[in-house]
């Protein structure tokens, strides 16, 4: 009973979160004495698909049906359920991202599977029970889950389990799945992507700013820092609420959860609801003029100072570092 890993590239290229999911699936497969197969719905070349073998997949199945160009979580789950039956698979791995969050719960219902959404470590098997940790209470705690059912689905939180390279023994095969017109219920009419910008949920570095910036006209220096560092920009909730910044940038308990390697907070107080969305970051830098700002308690590095003085100087220092590096 192979372990299946669902992958979705970013415009034809696989990225770190895909390697993480494949490597994770391969390590679970080893524990279960079986192999990890990738299921990919895009029409990608053999070479691109085969590259997933570097992370332990022994087979990649290409399910390239015209109908799958239209993202419909229900349709994708139906096809994955058919694939799982065909390959006699009981375990399916997703990345805990926009697509995974949409497809995995539908598939769980169709497969009668126990589902852990947002796992943060490699599962441990105890008989047929699988034990896995995941973040709960918006990052304020961790829970140890047990999946008791025969079929199991896990969506892996990005940047939590490092991918491991192995010798590539991977082959690529096509898999035909019958899709009828009534299988698809949701039709995509238009896709809008902000071009050139780094996606916040995938970013390694995030530069975030709060009400301390005083007004939307002052975001130039925030964007400049993001440009120098190759970072995405984010903001606190009130900043999005008063429309200084687009709401896609709002991070925190009621916004996006991010777990970058580096989170730089400029003029953000560090309210508990804000921290909930960012405290999974590896390193946190806080710049705030109030030495009592609660964010300093959650930070690794800090500067007590006025953002309007510190940030321009820091941008110069980052620029110098990048030029020398």
């Amino acid at each position: 009973m192979p372990v299946l890993v669902f992958t979705e590239s970013a415009n034809g290229t696989f990225k770190k979160s895909n390697f993480e999911a494949v490597s994770y699936g391969a390590r679970i497969a080893t524990q279960l004495n079986t192999e990890a197969y990738v299921i990919d719905f895009e029409n990608l070349s053999d070479d691109v698909l085969k590259s997933l073998g570097d992370y332990g997949a022994t087979k990649v199945y290409r399910v390239a049906n015209e109908a799958l160009k239209n993202f419909d979580a229900g349709l994708f789950a139906k096809v994955l359920n058919d694939v799982a039956k065909k390959l006699n698979a009981a375990t399916v791995i997703f990345s805990f991202n926009y697509s995974g969050k949409a497809i995995a719960p539908v598939l769980a219902a169709k497969m009668n599977a126990g589902y852990v959404a947002g796992a943060i470590d490699i599962p441990v098997m105890e008989g047929r029970t699988m034990k896995i940790r995941k973040n709960v209470f918006s990052g304020k705690a961790i829970a140890l889950y047990a999946i008791h059912s025969e079929n199991k689905i896990i969506a892996l939180t990005s940047n939590t389990v490092a991918p491991e390279k192995t010798e590539n023994k991977c082959s690529v095969e096509n898999l035909e799945i019958t899709i009828t017109a009534t299988d698809s219920k949701v039709k995509v009419k238009e896709v809008v992507k902000a071009s050139g910008k780094i996606t916040l949920s995938d970013a390694d570095i995030v530069v975030s700013a709060g009400r301390g910036l005083k007004g939307p006209e002052n975001w130039g220096m925030v964007e400049e820092m993001a440009n120098i560092l190759g970072a995405a920009t984010a903001c606190s909730r009130p900043v999005a609420d008063i429309h200084w910044r687009p709401h896609e940038e709002h991070v925190g308990q009621t916004g996006l959860t991010v777990r970058p390697n580096l989170y730089i907070a400029l003029g953000i107080s560090g309210a508990i609801q804000h921290l909930a969305g960012v405290n999974g970051s590896k390193v946190i830098v806080v710049i705030n003029k109030d030495p009592e700002a609660p964010f300093f308690k959650a930070a690794d590095y800090g500067i007590v100072g006025d953002v309007f003085e510190v940030v321009p100087k820091l941008n110069e220092a980052f620029k110098k570092f990048k030029a020398g590096a």
Binding site: N112, A113, G114, Y115, V116, K131, V136, G139, K140, A141, I142, A143, L144, Y145, A146, I147, H148, S149, N279, I284, V285, V286, F296, K297, A298, A299, D300, Y301, G302, I303, V304, G305, D306, E309, V310, K313, L314, A317, K320, F321
Partner: peptide
């Protein structure tokens, strides 16, 4: 299908290292 066996709290940060606003290159 699933149950929670136990909970834990994440490790606290060990403490912030402060850098002077006059010496940002140290950061």
């Amino acid at each position: 299908y699933t149950s929670i066996l136990s909970y834990e709290l994440p490790n606290d940060k060990t403490g912030v290292k402060l850098v002077s606003a006059d010496n940002v290159s140290e950061l």
